[in-house]
Every structure is written in structure tokens, then in C-alpha cells.
Design a protein around this nucleic acid. Structure first.
Length: 371
RNA sequence: GUGGGUGUAGUUCAGUUGGUAGAGCCCCUGAUUGUGGUUCAGGUGGUCGCCGGUUCAAGCCCGGUCACCCACCCCA
């Protein structure tokens, strides 16, 4: 956590940091609880902050949907959070062809790199180099990797073979990972994914994720088109995070989904739902015909609201036509007019702005009609 | 942290070799005195980001500065 955190000194001279993501805060909360019924399932939509130069898909203050399961070491927990992620994409009707959930395992990659001949001292460098693979040409990256591997060309070619693997049944990989429990776990998880049927999930040894608290399965959701280069979502298993803030050792798995990156993705593919684009701000507009009717209009507004409807009342004092215009602009489907006629007779007129029809009745009948 | 681009009306943008500040949309008023969308007529609205310089004259040229956008870096 370095120069991209938004930190400053508060008035008491303390160094403080605006949270750059939610997971450590969640781990702190869980560590602080005396007794918990495990596993814990938790979601949140926090504002987070990063001190970076803004650009497409990246701003200094952003919303992130977070979902975590703590207290289960079963692969079902990984499967469950990915299933929810898939469900979110399905709810936006995003076809699995336009995005990809690339996944791998930290434990597996550490073991595999070691078996490729990468020393523990160089493992961090090599991880970092793998993360940069998509940012340069194949040849250039090979040179870069050679540097990270300490100039050892045979180790480098082994690592290139590793990240090029496309199938867990690859004979070279199976031979390399003989007897590895981390590999067994990856194979098992792949089997689960196939049995459940998550077509967008693809085993990708190149996915390592930058966050260093991840220990097991890691995954990220990317746009497969070229438009959005930032990952929409990243997640994985973290075994030691809760333990940092207390003496309980609780393993967790979860993900963070960027609302801004998701929105850009949905816009790119025209998937913003109509109910969002055409959302109305209220169910009913209360038009006020004369200044003498203001109090009665307020009472009617309160009545309709107490029945569970969203109400916008005129506060402009403009002519009725202008008030109807405002209701129309806000896509509010019904307008009830309050004036001396209505107050005297007890009969109110409610116009349906969608079809133009007018319903006349008492206040109670108006409310009943809305239901 | 590095590089590029853009700053003109509420908004999206024009603005010629330097010579009186423009359009569409929005908004406001009326046609239509208590019922929206369409149409028609009219209208409001700008310290041209800010500071300085050159010039008889700067939206336009020059220097600086700020803001935003894009990319790099980074993405724990």
C-alpha cells in the first residue's frame, strides 16, 4: 500500500488513510467481533479512495460492490461468490462472450514457479512480470521475464510454458505438478466450475492479482473486447487477513466489483437497463391550482406518501400547464390536481399522463386507484 | 510522477488572414385565464477558465497558471 493511498494527517496529528478497498476493513470488523456464527456472509457498497490521476474507468472516489464469505475453507465458498458474480452479469443480460472470468491460484502458482526453478527470492519479481504480460509484445515480454528470472534462460522458458498453458490436462503441466496438493485443488475447482456450468470462467495462469493478501484461488472479470482495459472485478481467497487484526484465524473469500467500470462496460454494450434509463423520480405529482390550495395539497401529499407512494408536489406556484410539463419531464405517470373545486366538492381529478385518461374520486378513491 | 488534448451561453459545440459574440438543444413568455408531450411566434442568457504580455485593436498570437479529459505509471 504505497503512494496510491489517499493519506493525510488529521487534526490530532495522526496519520490516517481513506480506505482504498473494503476487504481489510471487513477483516477488522470480523476480528473485533467476540463470537460469530460462521460462516459469515457480508456484502456492502462502500465509497473507496485512491490517490491517482483520474482517467477512463478510474477516479479518486468510487463505489465498489463487495461480497465476502468468511469462515469457510471449502471450495464451495469460492464457487458461491463466483456464482453470484455470474448472476450479476446474467441479470444485466451480458452474454458470456463479451467478458471473461479469468482465474488461477496463488498457492498453485507459487508451487509451479518453484518447480520451474524460480527461487523464492525472485518469485515476487516473476509474479510482477507475469502480471505485465498483456502490456507488451511476446518478444519484449520474454526479455523482460528473462531479467526477472535473473538471466536464467532455461527457467525463463519453463515460466513461459507455464503461463501459456490453456488446459489443466496439459501433459507438460501434469508432469510438472506431480504430487502437488495446490494443483489438485485447482483441478478440483475446475471440475466444480464445469459441473455447475460457468461458461465465462477460464483457467488463466497469467492471472495473479496485485493484492498480496490473496493466498488461494484468485479471479478477475475482464471485458473481452478492447474497449475497457481495466478489470471490472477482482477477488479471491485470503487466509491470513483476519488474523492480522486479532488472534482468530479465519479464512475468507470475496470480490470487489467497481460500479464505474461495470457502468462503462454496460454502456459499451448497450446493456444499461431501460428501468434505469427511464426511471421516474416519483409515482404521483400533486399539482396546486391556486395558492389557497397549498395546505390541502400538502395534506394530500402526506396521505399518498403514507400509503407507500413516492410523491412530488409542486412548489413553483406556476400555471397548471407548467406543472404538468414538469411532471411529464420527470416521467411521473399520474398527476392529481388540488384546487378550490376539489376542496369544495371533495372530488379530485387524477390524470394518467401515459394514456391521457382522467379518473375522478375522493382522496381515498385516488389512493385506491393508485394501488 | 510523465506525456498529449480541451477550456466560448444552463448544455453540446461553431467562430475565417487579429476588426462589434454565434447556432442547435434546454429554459422562460405567449398562442391555450384550471390540465403535459406536437406546432407556431417571441425572449432571457457569456468577465470567451484565470493572470500577464504583444498590438490602434486579442475568443484568435505569446508566456504563465488552474481545471477537466485521454494515455502512461500504478492498480496493494
Amino acid at each position: 500500500m504505497g503512494r496510491q493511498s489517499y493519506c493525510f494527517e488529521d487534526r490530532g496529528g495522526r496519520e490516517v488513510i481513506l480506505r482504498p478497498e473494503m476487504t481489510p476493513s471487513l477483516a477488522r470488523m470480523v476480528a473485533a467481533q467476540g463470537e460469530l456464527q460462521l460462516p459469515v456472509r457480508w456484502f456492502s457498497m462502500p465509497l473507496c479512495y485512491r490517490y491517482e490521476r483520474p482517467q477512463r474507468g478510474r477516479v479518486r472516489e468510487f463505489l465498489q460492490f463487495n461480497l465476502d464469505i468468511l469462515g469457510s475453507e471449502n471450495l464451495a465458498a469460492e464457487l458461491e461468490v463466483i456464482l453470484v458474480l455470474q448472476g450479476i452479469m446474467d441479470s444485466f443480460k451480458a452474454p458470456s462472450s463479451i467478458y471473461r472470468i479469468g482465474w488461477s491460484s496463488r498457492r498453485f502458482m507459487s508451487d509451479a514457479l518453484s518447480r520451474c526453478g524460480v527461487s523464492n527470492e525472485l518469485a515476487g519479481e516473476v509474479f510482477s512480470a507475469i502480471d505485465k504480460r498483456d502490456k507488451m509484445s511476446t518478444d519484449k515480454w520474454a526479455d523482460f521475464l528473462l531479467g526477472a528470472c535473473g538471466g536464467d534462460s532455461s527457467v525463463t522458458s519453463q515460466v513461459i510454458s507455464l503461463v501459456s498453458v490453456e488446459s489443466l490436462a496439459d501433459p507438460w503441466l501434469v508432469d510438472l505438478m506431480t504430487g502437488s496438493t495446490a494443483f489438485q485443488e485447482v483441478v478440483e475447482f475446475n471440475k466444480l466450475l464445469q459441473e455447475v456450468g460457468i461458461p465465462s470462467a477460464v483457467f488463466s495462469p497469467g492471472v495473479v492479482r496485485g493484492l498480496d493478501y490473496y493466498t488461494g484461488i484468485v479471479f478477475e472479470l475482464m471485458d473481452t473486447g478492447g474497449e475497457n482495459k481495466r478489470s471490472l472485478c477482482g477477488g479471491g481467497r485470503y487466509d491470513n487477513l483476519v488474523g492480522l487484526f486479532g488472534n482468530k484465524r479465519i479464512s475468507g473469500v470475496g470480490f470487489g466489483l467497481g460500479v464505474l467500470t461495470l457502468t462503462l462496460f454496460l454502456e459499451t454494450y448497450g446493456l444499461i437497463p431501460d428501468r434505469v434509463k427511464e426511471a421516474s423520480t416519483a409515482d404521483v405529482y400533486i399539482a396546486v391550482a391556486t395558492p389557497e390550495a397549498i395546505a390541502a395539497a400538502c395534506l394530500l401529499t402526506a396521505l399518498v406518501r403514507s400509503n407507500g407512494f413516492r410523491v412530488m408536489m409542486d412548489v413553483s406556484g406556476k400555471k397548471l400547464g407548467k406543472q404538468f410539463n414538469e411532471a411529464s419531464r420527470y416521467r411521473i405517470p399520474f398527476v392529481v390536481t388540488v384546487g378550490s373545486e376539489e376542496i369544495n366538492s371533495g372530488n379530485y381529478k387524477m390524470k394518467n399522463l401515459v394514456d391521457g385518461s382522467i379518473f375522478t374520486g375522493s382522496q381515498e378513491e385516488i389512493v385506491g386507484r393508485l394501488k
